[in-house]
């Protein structure tokens, strides 16, 4: 604890900083550079865990634990949940569409960073009081925070409570859909299909291949092209339809080739046969 009051840290903490700091920066960079949202989320979670360690190293024991439990545990799970809802496999294109946006972003980011660094460098930040005395005053970090929250910051604390309630109610309102009419029965749906005169039978099932769970693989029409009708609409909207028509044709071709080799047919005959089949 006494080390926390010093102007310099212990060697151990310095080592920890440089190693974990590098990890945190890499994690942050990966967060903004990964194509898939789920990868970004995982990288961010890594960075946050590193930050939790840094909180602990800085004497903020309560915050370090809360960082892991609330941020990494709850908030990041919420993120992943939404990523799943929106489509876990959808990969974003990193190609910029707004002219000059990337250059401007780089220039502003660079300028901002340099200025921030210059500001920190300019400030007289050599005196570090350390948290030893503050933590010990009420018998520990958690007790010290509790004393502050329930005395000096009690109003802010109450208001954040109100904010959280409002936020949760707001989230429910935003995502909840009111059903304004009675759900239609199967009979009514069938009658509607008959009336509209299309797809009288149920929609065709997706194509079935042993390699996949097949829900995202469209069935093939007689000419070998995939039919989007066979895939459920959610996947279609996400653009997660796996097109296997090319694969299937290639497989067929390979099969034919292998069989012709095995049967020892002449190449010309094979070619003739191909032409004849066309």
């Amino acid at each position: 604890m006494s080390a926390l009051a010093a102007y310099t840290t212990s060697t151990g903490e310095a080592f920890q900083f440089w190693v974990l700091g590098t990890v945190a920066v890499i994690g942050a960079l990966c967060t903004i550079l990964m194509k898939k949202a789920v990868h970004s989320a995982l990288c961010l979670a890594g960075t946050m865990i590193v930050l939790a360690v840094f909180y602990l190293a800085n004497g903020a024991y309560f915050l370090g634990i809360v960082q892991i439990v609330v941020y990494t545990g709850a908030i990041m799970m919420l993120f992943l949940f939404v990523v799943m809802l929106v489509g876990v496999t959808a990969a974003d294109s990193l190609k910029e569409t707004i002219k000059g946006q990337r250059w401007w972003a780089a220039a502003c980011g660079l300028g901002f960073g340099v200025l921030l660094f210059a500001g920190i460098g300019n400030a007289a930040l050599t005196e570090f009081a350390g948290l030893g005395a503050a933590n010990a005053a009420h018998g520990g970090n958690v007790e010290g925070l509790a004393a502050l929250i329930f005395t000096k910051y009690v109003f802010a604390f109450e208001i954040t409570g109100a904010l959280l309630i409002t936020a949760s109610v707001g989230a429910m309102l935003l995502t909840h859909r009111e059903r304004t009419e009675r759900a239609r029965t199967q009979r009514e749906l069938a009658e509607q299909r008959v009336r509209e005169g299309k797809h009288l039978p149920p929609l065709p099932a997706p194509g079935v291949y042993a390699r996949h769970n097949a829900v995202d693989v469209p069935g093939l029409l007689p000419d070998g092209t995939p039919s989007e009708l066979t895939v459920i609409s959610t996947l279609r909207q996400r653009g997660q339809v796996r097109d296997v028509s090319g694969e299937a044709l290639a497989d067929l071709k390979a099969l034919e080739q292998r069989s012709s080799e095995r049967l020892g047919r002449d190449r010309d005959e094979a070619r003739d046969g191909e032409e004849a089949s066309r």
């Binding site: 915050l63 930040l125 009081a129 010290g144 929250i149 802010a156 904010l163």
Partner: peptide, 22 residues
């Protein structure tokens, strides 16, 4: 917070977390 030797900075960070959650 560590620099100044009091816990107010941590309190602010705590509130930031709450607001971020909301």
């Amino acid at each position: 917070s560590r620099m100044h030797g009091n816990l107010d900075g941590q309190i602010v960070a705590f509130f930031t977390m709450v607001v971020a959650a909301a």
